[in-house]
Nucleic acid binder design. Structure first.
Lengths: 250, 250
DNA sequence: TGGTATAGTTAGGTTAGGCTAACTTAGGTT
DNA sequence: AACCTAAGTTAGCCTAACCTAACTATACCA
């Protein structure tokens, strides 16, 4: 099952991203809503979903909601990541407005390869970290790009904050959401949705992992198993195999 | 005649750009060559040309070479302009290689609106002008973007060279070619091709305006008419109405 | 002056991604 | 329990952009 190999078309990438964003916001992705955000009619959505399902990225029983598979969730996150990287560059470097950046990013995000994306992200991050009023040492940036770290004896390099006290550079992350299984201690966030079906899903929900609940990661054991979080005041310990079904926003 | 209104698809933009580049390099655009650079088969080219012709962007008699109309030339130049802006940003800011930038630009160029293009161009120009080893005052850039000029009392702003001795900023041009009618005195360049047909074209060629000839603009009268250029050692005076048929590279 | 190679075109087929119109399903109302 | 409405699906059609195979025009050469 599933034609995993083939790259997604722009259009299918957009559908996948739309489904992902809808789930993030309202836990479910309905055909009607997808049609609305994509600005197409419902039959087009049905067809697109069929196509995504054939590639193993979504699961869909007729007349039911659309579910992302593991693979689909990964790819969707990747697309959203590109989108927000481009958008972030457009706003913080080129100083375009929020709306302009948003709409422009929709077009550009499909045309950008991972390598370039990475550079763009780092650059936007670098610029943001420098702040608008400080001089920006482009040579430091290039040095970082080429050698993986800032030049020695560099006085004014970007943020040296809590998470990145080692001297290797801006974070280059603009991730919007992850699985609870990929999270680091200290992180706070919100439960977005629980993927998967049946008993596992039910069990997780009963543990209080419901959409919109706020949580904080307390401890992550070596190898990421188990994960201890604080939720609604009490502590909860989860196996990694369970946590991976929980999509969270940071 | 001509459905001028409708926006070009990515694909048609690519065809138009390819035709333009071929003419720039070798004066003629043949179906076979277009097919080669576009990496498609000849029948696809024939069809694309038909479609461009229907929009009034090219002229094409069966079995003859493809000619750009005025409108087509303008749009082609615009596309090439976007392409080189994006590419220039990728190389000079993100430090991607020549080839990577080239191929990446092909994808991005279609997704970029004029406003954003302008910013991108200015930014790349700004960065290049600053040089890699100088500090880059992003706040100056933003000030320029927002107010049209550099802040007062700004010591180290980018190039103040010949053409732009007024203090209003980087040139923001990466133009590859123009009409001879749009040129400024002092410019040197090469004749790329002569558009138009019949007697006008013949006359211009006879005046020595042949592909690859090098020229220098001596004087441009007010309102741009006439234009005096130096060519093969002697001087030549052209009416604007003639000069607009001559495509030049600077 | 015809013959052939190469360039270009036409005819007809495929796939992706849209659409409208008409049908089906599921879920709430009475 | 029957029915109605809104959501979703199916069927059938369209356009853009590609393809292959087969036909035609041009130009050059002996």
């Amino acid at each position: 099952m599933a034609e995993v190999g083939s790259r997604l078309s722009r259009s299918l990438e957009d559908y996948l991203e739309a489904i992902y964003n809808l789930k993030l916001r309202s836990q479910v992705a309905r055909v009607k809503d997808i049609a609305h955000v994509m600005d197409v009619k419902m039959p087009s959505v049905t067809e697109a979903i069929r196509s995504l399902a054939a590639k193993g990225l979504v699961k869909h029983e007729p007349y039911e909601n659309v579910e992302l598979t593991d693979e689909g969730l990964d790819q969707a996150r990747d697309i959203a990541h590109r989108h927000s990287a481009v958008k972030s560059f457009l706003t913080s470097v080129l100083d375009l407005s929020e709306e302009e950046s948003e709409s422009e990013a929709c077009g550009i995000e499909h045309a950008i390869r991972p390598d370039t994306l990475d550079r763009l992200l780092k650059y936007a991050d670098f610029v943001r970290a420098c702040g608008q009023n400080k001089a920006l040492r482009l040579d430091h940036f290039l040095h970082y790009i080429r050698h993986g770290q800032y030049p020695d004896g560099c006085g004014s390099h970007p943020h040296d904050d809590a998470n990145h006290s080692h001297k290797t550079a801006p974070a280059a992350v603009a991730i919007e959401s992850t699985r609870l299984s990929d999270v680091t201690p200290g992180t706070k966030g919100r439960i977005a949705f629980v993927s998967g079906h049946g008993p596992i899903r039910k069990r997780l929900m009963e543990m209080g992992l419901t959409p919109d609940a706020r949580f904080e990661v307390v401890r992550v054991a070596p190898l990421g198993d188990p994960i201890e979080i604080k939720l609604r005041g009490y502590h909860l310990s989860l196996r990694k195999s369970e946590a991976k079904y929980v999509e969270v926003q940071l």
